[in-house]
Design a protein around this nucleic acid. Sequence first.
DNA 1: TTATTAATTTTGGTATACCTAAAAGTTAAT
DNA 2: ATTAACTTTTAGGTATACCAAAATTAATAA
Lengths: 218, 218
Amino acid sequence: MRTETVENYLKTIYNLSSDNTLVVTNQQLADKLSINPASVTEALRKLHELKYVIYEKSYGTRLTTAGSKLALGIVRRHRIWETYLVKELGFGWDEVHVIAEELEHVQNDKLINKLAEILGNPVYDPHGDPIPDAKGKILKSNFIKLSETKPKGNYKVMGVIDHSTAFLKYLDKHQLIIGATITIKTIEEFDNSIILICQKKDVNISPKAAECIIVQAL
Amino acid sequence: MRTETVENYLKTIYNLSSDNTLVVTNQQLADKLSINPASVTEALRKLHELKYVIYEKSYGTRLTTAGSKLALGIVRRHRIWETYLVKELGFGWDEVHVIAEELEHVQNDKLINKLAEILGNPVYDPHGDPIPDAKGKILKSNFIKLSETKPKGNYKVMGVIDHSTAFLKYLDKHQLIIGATITIKTIEEFDNSIILICQKKDVNISPKAAECIIVQAL
DNA sequence: TTATTAATTTTGGTATACCTAAAAGTTAAT
DNA sequence: ATTAACTTTTAGGTATACCAAAATTAATAA
Ligand SMILES: [Mn+2]
Ligand SMILES: [Mn+2]
Ligand SMILES: [Mn+2]
Ligand SMILES: [Mn+2]
């Protein structure tokens, strides 16, 4: 298997399994990778042979220790590059994900560690995701989704789940950026959209968007 | 064809054809790419169909205008990355080639132009090779190889042809770095090795190494 | 429980990018 | 002009990584 393919599978399994607590289904992988489910089955069989995953037929997949180690390396590279692009090269948080998708596959530990050092060994990337250290150690936070908040509560935006340009530009427009403080005003009965106050302005967030915003109670 | 494969062929054809004046043979490509000649034939047929090269059976290959444009882009990316790794990230000139082999395939003009801008739009890379500008324009120099020099002459080291770590470390050891001034003492009759003075010390250069060092007469 | 629906796997197939071995073509030497 | 040496191409084959369609298996609803 080509390393880039292996890496994309391992990273995606990692991202979908929430720190290896969940078993990942073929469907989820097919969706995330935009690949036919039949191809996912084949790939998982090979990854199982390579001992990067434990794939149980018709049930699901999870990473082995070896697979986890690799996945964390890829995630580290992705997030370090995103941070470097934003902090050192002046890119917007809405532009860096696609570039990091390519840069993450460049295999050179010295390079990544050098970038990390220049950045002061950051612990969070521009989207609020934790960056594993060189040994693969990663912080786990207990933040919640905006969709899980209650009216009248005050929260701080800690991160986003979706890294697409479209979504991040939409957040920029409403100043819903990392660190922003918000107050939940109401939740619409009709469609579950959330009305919150950010920078003294009312903002209406769709349920779909609320699933992609990570906050911390204040 | 996978873009990375196409890119590696185009770049290699470019590097072997000395600015499109020479026709490149299959053998040369097979050697440089460490690929079987039979595979080169197949690949060239496809590149011809894609109109990136003019491939004449049993004769040779040269780049089309479209192929040249692409090749210059890849060469630009390779050399900008090498320069960035040395100048901004503290790598040695002997370490950067392999990393740039990967980074050169990351497709993002804004990124490369940003790096170039930070570097002050450099015209030469750490090995003395000219860097094409964003439009593909490239300086052509009329420097000569060390193997073409005459005894008693004074020269300045302008570049190297081989980018391998082994070769560059060997040059470092003798202080034969870019910008160094040298005087040719003699050329051994026996094996054509060159004895020159660099930093007041005698250095003996094999004919093979002399083919890989670019100098300018002073 | 039995349909119905949905997810997964199998089957058969494509395109890419390599390979080895053999055949054909080219170049150079006698 | 032949032979010999080398280069290139053809023929046949492998592994990867995908696909669509059909068959199977699992989950859900009636
Ligand atoms: Mn990302
Ligand atoms: Mn990727
Ligand atoms: Mn190089
Ligand atoms: Mn390359």
